[in-house]
Design a protein around this nucleic acid. Structure first.
Lengths: 202, 202
DNA sequence: CCGTTTTTTTGAACGCCGTTCATTTTTATC
DNA sequence: GATAAAAATGAACGGCGTTCAAAAAAACGG
């Protein structure tokens, strides 16, 4: 029974991730406290540091889960749609929907920054990069001439643009948009991009 | 000499804003400490709280200054250029340039969030909104049919899109772009928007 | 099963942070 | 220059992430 200890350790890690996820979803990243998480998870304060290097490492786990959830809704969004333009629109709408449904988990993805020197683990960068694959699909149908690497960069640019719109809207920066016109506004914006993508050569 | 006290108070406020600005520019918002600021400004720790409600209020002052600086470079960017499309490109380039030249001050604008309940002062919202005016100018030449309110919303959307691209690039999210291709990539993106803006009716 | 060793868990304690407030120092008034 | 009003001071407070000596649990040999 060597696996007994491993299982216990994994259960502890899972419980802590669950507790942290709930706390972030309810109070946001800035309201996250190690003492609250461990109390919710039913373990001692110090236990957190036996399961993770520090609070940042735990947050990265939560964010990784969130990215996988977004990955799933984006996959579902394009399912059954062949037209690349409409795929783009569905992807943007799915992203907006997720952000609106889980604003604090979604914000935690971008609010969390490691202290000065430390680097984000490669596997978590990979979690992020996976989202771009959804954009690359329709994009290469719209711009078949684009080379592989250019395609990745362009996909990131388009994702970033949509993210910026969703982000600044949900944060209510620069005077708020009525929330129900946001869907339309984003849809119009994708139209704008598609119009450019189909006429320009890249 | 009733104004003596006011002058001293203003000098203290100014010194603290200067010190905080330098600290943020060098170490970022997360490395900002009340004790460092007051030491740099040559006053006691408690003095900060006689000049400002709290650290957040001081940060808002720094951010307000930064917004005015961005406002200035955006004004300068369109100066002498009449073509609205080229104005758009210059505005985007100016924004990117500022962000790249002062990354930590620029990031502080978006990283700083007040604790749960508290609202951003109206005058600071106004500082933010002023940036959008620069976009509204060329945009209404490109889409004269757009109504006043729609114009403001659309300007915000375009700003947000550009901001998202700059933001995600400078933070090196989703695998980094070679930094020298970022200018090109942003320029291409504005081309895409312009192509859409001039063909679509909005 | 028990005694012994090894591993894991625990939570009091540490150092650092923003903020406060009794005290001291400076400024204003007569 | 004496007195009153205002402002500046920095030690002290409560709360935070993190550590670590001590306690508890698990593993092992007989």
């Amino acid at each position: 029974m060597t696996g007994k200890r491993e299982a216990k350790r994994d259960a502890l890690r899972g419980g802590l991730i669950d507790a942290a996820t709930t706390r972030i979803a309810e109070n946001g990243l800035s309201g996250l406290r190690a003492r609250d998480i461990t109390a919710d998870a039913g373990c001692a304060l110090g236990a957190l540091y036996t399961a993770f290097d520090d609070l940042d490492a735990l947050i990265i786990e939560v964010n990784s889960r969130t990215l996988r959830r977004i990955d799933a809704v984006m996959s579902a969004a394009v399912d059954g749609e062949i037209n690349p333009g409409r795929q783009m629109k569905r992807l943007a709408a799915a992203y907006l929907d997720f952000a609106r449904a889980h604003p604090r988990l979604w914000r935690a993805l971008f609010d969390h920054a490691l202290p000065e020197g430390r680097a984000v683990p490669d596997w978590h960068i990979e979690d992020q990069a996976r989202l771009l694959v959804h954009i690359v699909g329709p994009l290469e149908k719209l711009q078949p001439a684009l080379a592989r690497e250019k395609l990745r960069v362009r996909a990131r640019t388009l994702f970033a643009a949509v993210h910026g719109i969703v982000s600044i809207s949900l944060e209510n920066r620069f005077v708020g948009i009525p929330i129900d016109t946001l869907d339309d506004e984003l849809d119009r914006f994708i139209d704008l991009l598609l119009s450019g993508l189909t006429t320009a050569s890249g």
